[in-house]
Design a protein around this nucleic acid. Structure first.
Length: 687
RNA sequence: GCUGCUGUAGCUCAGGUGGUAGAGCACCUCCUUGGUAAGGAGGAGGUCCUGGGUUCAAAUCCCAGCAGCAGCUCCA
């Protein structure tokens, strides 16, 4: 037996005899560390604290102490420590459930982002009513604080142990040949709860700290809809009760930012049973935001050389036969309307076929390419009921759609143009929490159209363009659309759910199906490529994200009410009304709060209503032909001449300043407002 | 679509074990109001999600449906 050499995080070296454990490493550093230790990482691999180590390397003791951060910064608690705690909590929950329902069969129970779950096959209904009993049983196990004993064995021994348990037998078969097979047992009693598990776990049940069961849901075995549906019990676990409570508090705070709540409070949209689920009623405030987004898109697209088109909402079946969407996608289309002459009409699930028809409206020349056809188009898709969620997943949506028809040697530049457009929007909205996915094809012949040469070429182009832009992205093989590679901007909402917000897709299938051609300089007929793109996604999804991203506090240019003028007393209502009327002649959305509310209440209403600009007027202002300007985003306020205020407000609207971010108004925003036309740093330059 | 939870006034929610509903905010009316997050008084407002069933009697119990929420699956 040779000694093992460990390098500690501070670069010091430690030499211990072979078979030493993480606990001994920790103890040799300090008693306090040994007491706090939950596990040990050697060269990145995590081991049970008491597991004899076979090899040395870079060693790090895992504790639940936040590393070098202040109390309460639970986000940065050691992820590995949390995973250990949660994996063990999952194990304890399984033990508790089996003790209460002996017929329950355990399947799989990993730690996940904010907690853990265990998939269980149990025919009895399981609901939150059962949580107190399960939690009580878990608490008992945790209080007993028995060590988790690791039992390693051969494949044959393991097979004998799990005999009769189809799920665990299957799990065991999935363990790669040559990998160590282990079970974990609670305590030393040979009859105690034992589960096939790769580990690692915290040293003993008492180290779990605080846990709470969160919910139960169905989950298909292996994630396959055709397989049996299991019961998945979700829980969360934290090193301390304080950390658990902070997490629950965070969840509550997130709910305050939920677009469904903000959308209701701020009267953005509404959904009515009598209209249908997933079908959005845009209230006046929401309609303003849509209108502003459309104006933004129209402007950017005009500058980028797009032409606007408009197409109908219903269309004969023949078009979707031609596009290939029938019958393959019929399941997610609304069923057809059949007219007297047996003609079937469908609600359109996408705009591309119509745009292709516009392309086909007359013969096209190479001189017209790239031809960019844009439309904010309404589409209807029959999404499964369980998939609908507020504005994020709907059945009726309005897409920021466009199709670019171009030749292969134009693809690169056009793709770059669409990426720059997306990037412009994201920078302008200051959306930073997103990632870009490049979806590529696989060799699966059933899934992708056969044109390996075109695939290779186009994927190369798209990848190059992304690299050239310097945008970080992740490649996903086998996730491309059947007709070509695509780039998606993935956003996370406030609940942590991820959705595609923007997309750019290359298409070499549709030009074939629609027999799209153009006449080349040499007089021959050539086929264009099609780029589908939707940088602002759909109104529904984009406004949902904006609501959550901005917490409902829209910048002046987007805000449904841009200015509320509040007189300090009734005597000044006339002055206030004159100001608002003047603002409205500049097409600014200005209102006077001439309600019977007290002055204080009016201020409060403007604040809770998240109006970006509040102009207060009284005797002082009237005498000076001025207003006192209070912004939603900054603590300061400033009194300024009306002429200046009008100009600053109009400029904010014109330049689409994100003036809801306090840093747009550095060091006393009144100066920033006075500068007016200086928009540097407030938005990207033109694409 | 599947698993679980939920559905009471415009909103947020109370209404042990069956006896035809209540609060706060919002709304309306009146009074009050000269300076930065809730002035006061009064009033109006409910098919208790829908449809069946049990019962002398159902917001409450049972069944079915619809809708919402979380998750699974799916997402051209």
């Amino acid at each position: 037996m040779t000694d093992l050499r460990f390098t500690l995080p501070d670069k010091s070296e430690l030499v211990l005899p072979a078979g030493t454990t993480g606990r001994q490493i920790a103890a040799s550093i300090g008693a306090k560390l040994a007491a706090a230790a939950l596990g040990v990482a050697v060269d990145g691999e995590i081991f049970d604290l008491d597991r004899p180590l076979a090899a040395g390397g870079a060693a790090r003791i895992i504790t639940a102490q936040p590393r070098g951060v202040k109390d309460g910064e639970i986000d940065r608690l050691d992820r590995e420590a949390l995973a250990l705690i949660r994996h063990s909590a999952s194990h304890v929950m399984a033990e508790a459930i089996v003790s209460l329902f002996p017929e329950a069969k355990l399947v799989y129970g990993p730690p996940v982002e904010n907690g853990f779950y265990y998939d269980i096959d149990l025919d009895r209904p399981l609901g939150s009513d059962d949580f107190p009993a399960i939690e009580a049983a878990m608490a008992k196990i945790v209080a007993a604080d028995k060590p988790f004993r690791r039992i390693e064995c051969t494949r044959e021994e393991a097979m004998a142990r799990v005999a009769g348990d189809a799920y665990k037998t299957e799990n065991l078969r999935a363990v790669p040949e040559g990998e160590v097979i282990s079970f974990y047992r609670t305590g030393d009693d040979p009859g105690a709860f034992t589960d096939l598990c790769r580990g690692p776990h915290v040293p003993s049940a008492g180290r779990i700290g605080a846990f709470k069961l969160m919910q139960v849901s169905g989950a298909y075995l292996h994630g396959d809809e055709k397989q049996k549906q299991l019961k998945r019990v979700y829980g969360t676990a934290w090193p301390t009760k304080t950390a658990l409570e902070a997490y629950l508090e965070r969840l509550k705070l997130a709910q305050e930012r939920d677009h469904r709540k903000l959308g209701q409070d701020l009267e953005i949209f509404s959904i009515a049973d009598e209209v249908g689920s997933g079908l959005i009623l845009w209230l006046p405030n929401g309609a303003v935001i849509r209108q502003e987004l459309e104006a933004l898109a129209a402007e950017r697209e005009f500058l980028a050389g797009y032409k606007r088109v408009a197409t109908p909402h219903i269309t004969k079946a023949a078009l979707y036969h031609r596009s290939g969407h029938l019958p393959y996608y019929q399941g997610s289309m609304y069923p057809p309307m059949t007219l007297d002459d047996d003609q079937e009409y469908y609600l359109k699930p996408m705009n591309c076929p119509h745009h292709h028809m516009i392309y086909l409206a007359r013969p096209r020349s190479y001189r017209e390419l790239p031809l960019r056809l844009a439309e904010y188009g309404d589409c209807y898709r029959y999404e499964k009921s369980g998939e609908l969620a507020g504005l994020l997943r709907v059945r009726g949506m309005c897409m920021n759609d466009a199709h670019i028809y171009c030749s292969l040697d134009q693809v690169r530049e056009e793709f770059l143009g669409t990426i720059n457009l997306s990037r412009y929007y994201y920078e302008m909205f200051r959306i930073k929490d997103f990632w870009i996915r490049l979806s590529l094809h696989s060799k699966d012949k059933d899934k992708y159209i056969a044109n390996e040469d075109l695939w290779e070429k186009s994927e190369e182009i798209v990848r190059d363009v992304l690299k050239e832009c310097g945008l970080p992205f992740e490649e996903r093989t086998g996730e491309a659309a059947f007709y070509g590679p695509k780039i998606d901007y993935q956003l996370r909402n406030v609940i942590g759910r991820e959705e595609t917000a923007s997309t750019t897709q290359l298409d070499f299938a549709m030009p074939e199906r629609f027999d799209l051609v153009y006449t080349a300089p040499d007089g021959t007929r050539r086929r264009p490529l099609v780029i589908h793109r939707a940088p602002l996604g759909t109104h529904e999804r984009m406004i949902a994200f904006l609501l959550e991203h901005l917490g409902g506090a829209f910048p002046t240019w987007l805000a449904p009410v841009q200015v509320v003028v509040i007189p300090v007393a009734e005597r000044f209502e006339r002055y206030a009304r004159d100001i608002a009327a003047r603002l409205r002649t500049d097409l600014l959305r200005a209102e006077v709060d001439d309600s019977a509310d007290s002055f204080n209440k009016k201020i409060r209403n403007a604040v809770t209503g998240k109006t970006p600009n509040v102009w207060i007027v009284g005797g002082k202002e009237q005498a000076a032909e001025a207003v006192t300007w209070r912004r939603h985003c900054v603590a300061q306020q400033a009194t300024m001449k009306l002429a200046e205020a009008y100009e600053a407000l109009a400029e904010s609207r014109r330049a689409r300043l994100m003036d809801n971010f306090p840093d747009v108004h550095p060091r006393g925003w009144e100066n920033a407002a006075r500068r007016g036309s200086d928009s540097s740093g407030n938005g990207p330059e033109a694409v």
